[in-house]
Design a protein around this nucleic acid. Structure first.
Lengths: 342, 342
DNA sequence: GACTGTTGTCGAAGCGCTTCGACAATGTTG
DNA sequence: CAACATTGTCGAAGCGCTTCGACAACAGTC
């Protein structure tokens, strides 16, 4: 409730001196700065947000659009939203939330009213309407996720293509060449949420280039059994499995394989790739190539701030290299697994 | 980018007339209002957020503090955060997110800088430090959740006590009197997250008052098997089960019961109570007494706005009556279940 | 010691809006 | 038709801050 005038009076200086002393935007003698700081602390002074925004012509607020599709993975979104918020606070920005039925209108509004200095877009579809809008807004926008057409946009995401390649290469290196991918549920694919498609295409492409016999399934259920049934029918000698799917499905893979008498990792090596959840609570934890929300969000916020403060010109796509976390779910395939070695 | 001056010029009136015409705070002749509205639309005018905030001395922003404990149920929090945001937008407020490591500092800051007009507190512990802070802040605060001491606060939540009573009464009405409760994991209880405690105490109290033999378990795992083991050991004739627990645990209840040859609902009637998740994806969906995020958040936001705009004086506790959703998981107990009736 | 920097401080001009008081221009009342 | 309300509009005063230009005061320079 104390204003800059109170601080100025207390410190015996003018309000502009207070402003400069506190912001450091002009040199102020140490003695004066100390007096001003003491006065500010004593009075519990914090600049009035809207007054600062109006005068400085910046709000220090980032808007976050987080659509909620029916098939949205709530906890993944919470993770991303929170990571954006934390990353923003670390660089002294606050975040406002824009909900979906409101996503386009909200983006327009927060840009037009100067509520936000910039916008972060989450859960990007291949043909996202927010991409069209972003191109016409003068307000900086960063996408976490990659739409089909990135022209004129700034996008950050895990390198799903590299993650798919890494997953296959790991399995192959372990001598596991009968490989299947359980991808995301059909409803997510149908919506053209883009990252499952990117992963899937890279998976198929890399498998083909290695001459592998690899198959892919998109479940319709929220458990793995149906997908495993489909895989075991077509590939009874399965020995490597890649999961780029939901937590519920991944969590029931071990049980579904058990119904065929297959164990992880002895019979089937499993890698969860491009997923936000941790598998440490699963009956058997899986090696994971994580979709690291922290890395994506920190990068995205840093880029957005660069755009806001420096009008930087940034690449359309920034891909975060995948990393591999071992949990022992991929062991070398033994040639005759069922008969014990000497 | 158009300012109120541009609109005033376009409409041939003064800026105060524009302001009144658009806000409706003073009567303006229909012809003038129409002209102003046309001009505003033509120029795409929206008032500059911080200018409006500064002049009107209100930000139309609500802060939401959503702590993230290690055991936090991410998707429940996302649901609440989103519901608050939607409810706020419906009454023309935006929401800023305050993350936890920052919760107290963030509340102070958003109040002191007038960033937010009011604060919503989520995930309330029995002895929440934010309650102490709320009492000394002049900024209106509404809690979604009930701390141990509500003196001087405004709190909204599901009536967990009534929900526990309702769950027991339903089972008893179905002739099921050998009842157990699977509560939340010990780590959540240890943190003194308050609603599991409220449910648990009400459950035990009501069971005792009915003279029922009811038992309670707090799991340590993220699946039901351990809890079911404990229950079946102590109460082999179990025929009613109440779940006030996590989605993972509730989701594995049917499987855990199956290991004892018990089926839902024939052998054991099951009710999920005070939970945010839906059981419709479970192998057997359960009757549910939902913790309705929409209802809680809408009520909380309405009360907060009442506090902000009317300085209303509101009750310390507003309890939302529980509702019961049937999915067929509680059928009348037959006396001799295993032997078929004539 | 007259010249040109620095450095530290101040005053004042806004930022774009809301809102108060004033006041014509009407309408209403006895 | 005077006296009094009511209605519609305007001008101006801020809201609390940032930031620009001005300018003393003091240092270096040749």
């Amino acid at each position: 409730m104390a204003t800059i005038d109170d601080v100025a009076r207390e410190a015996g200086v003018s309000i502009s001196t207070v402003s400069y002393a506190l912001s450091g935007k002009r040199s102020i003698s140490p003695s004066t700065r100390l007096r001003v700081e003491a006065a500010a602390t004593k009075l519990g002074y914090l600049p009035h947000a809207s007054a600062r925004m109006l005068a400085a012509n910046r709000s220090d607020i980032i808007a976050v659009t987080t659509p909620l599709h029916p098939d949205t993975d709530q906890s993944a979104h919470m993770t991303f939203t929170m990571e954006v918020t934390k990353a923003a606070r670390d660089v002294d920005y606050d975040t406002v939330l824009l909900v979906h039925n409101d996503a386009v209108e909200g983006m327009k509004r927060s840009a037009a009213t100067s509520l936000a200095d910039g916008i972060i877009v989450l859960d990007v579809d291949a043909h996202d309407e927010r991409a069209v809008l972003a191109r016409q807004l003068k307000c900086p926008v960063v996408f976490i996720g990659i739409p089909a057409d990135t022209t004129g946009l700034v996008c950050v995401d895990l390198d799903f293509e590299a993650a798919a390649v890494m997953a296959i290469d790991r399995l192959v290196a372990a001598g596991r060449t009968n490989i299947a991918l359980i991808s995301h549920p059909t409803e997510t694919i149908d919506r053209e949420s883009n990252f499952p498609l990117r992963f899937l295409h890279a998976f198929e492409g890399h498998a083909a280039s290695l001459g592998l016999d690899a198959i892919t399934v998109n479940p319709t259920e929220h458990r793995a059994h149906e997908a495993i049934d489909a895989i075991m029918t077509r590939m009874p000698n399965l020995n490597g499995l890649v999961l780029n799917t939901t937590s519920d499905i991944a969590g029931s893979v071990s049980a579904a394989l058990a119904e065929y008498g297959r164990k992880v990792p002895t019979d089937v090596g499993v890698i969860a790739a491009g997923v936000t959840f941790s598998t440490h609570r699963f009956p058997v934890p899986f090696d994971t190539i994580p979709l690291d929300a922290h890395a994506s969000c920190t990068t995205a916020v840093a880029m957005l701030v660069d755009l806001i403060e420096n009008h930087a010109s940034l690449p359309e796509r920034t891909l975060i290299p995948p990393s591999y976390i071992e949990h022992g779910s991929v062991t070398p395939a033994t040639v005759a697994k069922t008969s014990k070695a000497t």
